[in-house]
């Protein structure tokens, strides 16, 4: 568990990484050979910014676009509902229906 890798890059073109375990604030990750200190909790399976992303920029996962940035994002940020959106159909949560 201690040695379990922190994240995985799914495609060379991707500007996000996927966490392989629950990552905690203060933890130092190595992103493209650079140390990055996390400021947020990033649970298993969630996305981490691999590059600085400008508002409106496409988020790339599996080498394909999975939506657009809603705000400027810095390397190591959690990338999720709060800072990106679908280019097709809005996502919904239990709290925000309709």
């Amino acid at each position: 568990m201690i040695n379990r890798k922190a994240h995985v890059l799914l495609h060379q073109k991707d500007n996000i990484l996927v966490s392989c375990r629950d990552l905690t604030p203060g933890e130092t990750l190595c992103i493209d050979h650079q140390p990055v200190v996390l400021t947020q909790m990033i649970p298993l399976g969630h996305k981490i910014a691999r590059r600085p992303l400008a508002k409106g920029e496409k988020i790339l996962k599996y080498g394909a676009s999975i939506g657009s940035a809603l705000a400027d994002i810095v390397v190591g940020d959690h990338v999720h509902l709060h800072n990106m959106k679908s280019d097709y159909i809005p996502s919904h949560t239990r709290k925000a229906v309709g």
């Binding site: 996962k61 676009s65 509902l81 679908s86 996502s91 919904h92």
Partner: peptide, 23 residues
């Protein structure tokens, strides 16, 4: 008015329909 996307998908780290689709 809804994609094929459940609240649990988002809790598990998926953010958009097209991201879920690629997986």
């Amino acid at each position: 008015g809804f994609g094929s996307f459940a609240p649990g998908n988002a809790e598990g780290g998926l953010t958009t329909q097209e991201e879920k689709s690629m997986g």
